[in-house]
């Protein structure tokens, strides 16, 4: 079974209808284009997203198509980009704010945690902020530590936010559409090294990928490999390498971190008895620590080996050494072998 078929099976999408091969970033753009056309409340803004189309070109062509009222540049201030999104959402718009790099969420952090995440709760549901913050994250593009970090744990640690990270064009489009149509603030991380590296079939018809549902990329019986975002192609490469050695690895893409698909992961681990968790964020307080905790709590009797983890290191993200820093297929394979030989 191919990964594409697996994914379709997981998301329950009909295989009928036209599909095209898009890159991940094209899928992001297409989701915004379709939602801008569908709903006049949707606006897209951020630094250099207008005429420039964004530094990665995620918003290319959108201002030309929808005009500067709907798609516009802002001052260079992440606090005001996020803060303005909060105010717009409270007043009834569906803002899609771009933070140029996840590394620059810092100046907007208080707006995210004090305003976006809490306004529904603190107002007793009188005010809500359904907004999307799109931001490229992760390494692998020779960006050094201010253009390569994976800050998702800061946000998964804040109740009131939903946090997602697609790894395929299909999911990129479907998750972004689900976020735009949802009622909660969503931090939407885009694994930047997959922007053009990840290509895949994307239906022409309208669809969403429900936030909170993971996907099985490859079925297997010996070990469960769980990842999300930029590490997914390497996780699949590791699984393929192990398959050549006669080991059957099940590969799960979380897609959503908050909420995450515990049922999918637990049922897989109960079947395989082994789990290796892969991400590129630093190890301490890594989101996968929560996944590991839930596995040992809920599936302890099924485990044949300790839960393995492959993560970034607890150093700032390095420039020259980023190939060493990132979990590659070899390190993932080695972690699987260790679990298998336990």
């Amino acid at each position: 079974m191919t990964a594409t078929q697996d994914r379709s099976a997981q998301t329950g999408q009909a295989q009928t209808g036209e599909t095209r091969i898009l890159t991940l970033i094209q899928a992001v753009t297409e989701a915004m284009r379709e939602e801008l056309a569908r709903d006049d409340r949707v606006v897209v803004f951020g630094e250099d997203v207008g005429a420039r189309g964004g530094v990665f070109l995620a918003t290319a062509g959108l201002q030309a198509e929808f005009g500067p009222r709907r798609v516009f540049d802002t001052p260079l201030s992440e606090a005001s980009v996020v803060g303005a999104a909060v105010g717009m959402a409270v007043r009834g718009l569906r803002p899609i704010a771009e933070i140029q790099f996840a590394d620059y969420m810092g100046p907007g952090f208080d707006q995210i945690i004090s305003q976006a995440a809490k306004i529904r709760y603190r107002s007793g549901g009188q005010f809500t902020a359904p907004l999307i913050i799109r931001t490229p994250s992760g390494g692998g593009v020779k960006g050094g530590h201010h253009h390569s970090q994976s800050p998702e744990s800061y946000f998964t640690h804040t109740p009131g936010l939903k946090v997602v990270m697609p790894s395929t064009p299909y999911d990129a489009k479907g998750l972004l559409k689900a976020a735009i149509r949802g009622e909660d603030p969503v931090i939407y991380f885009e694994p930047k090294r997959l922007y053009r590296a990840a290509k895949g079939e994307v239906p022409s018809h309208d669809y969403i990928v429900k936030i909170g549902e993971g996907a099985v990329r490859r079925e297997g019986t010996d070990l469960t490999l769980v990842g999300y975002g930029g590490v997914m192609p390497d996780a699949e490469r590791a699984a393929a390498a192990l398959a050549a050695e006669g080991v059957s690895v099940e590969v799960i893409d979380l897609r959503s971190l908050v909420p995450w698909d515990r049922e999918l992961v637990l049922s897989s681990v109960q079947k395989t008895g082994r789990a290796v968790l892969v991400s590129e964020a630093p190890r301490i307080s890594n989101f996968m620590g929560e996944v590991a905790y839930v596995i040992q709590e809920q599936a302890f009797d099924s485990l044949l080996a300790p839960v393995g983890q492959v993560a970034g290191f607890d150093t700032p993200y390095p420039y020259v050494q980023d190939k060493v820093y990132l979990p590659g297929p070899n390190r993932i394979t080695a972690a699987c072998v260790k679990a298998l030989n336990y």
Binding site: G83, A84, M88, R91, G92, D110, Q111, S114, I119
Partner: peptide, 21 residues
Amino acid sequence: VSISSSIASQVPPAAGNAMAQ
């Protein structure tokens, strides 16, 4: 709008609220 204790955190949202208006 419901008040946040975080000082001045209402200012950028107020700008956004006005932009929406």
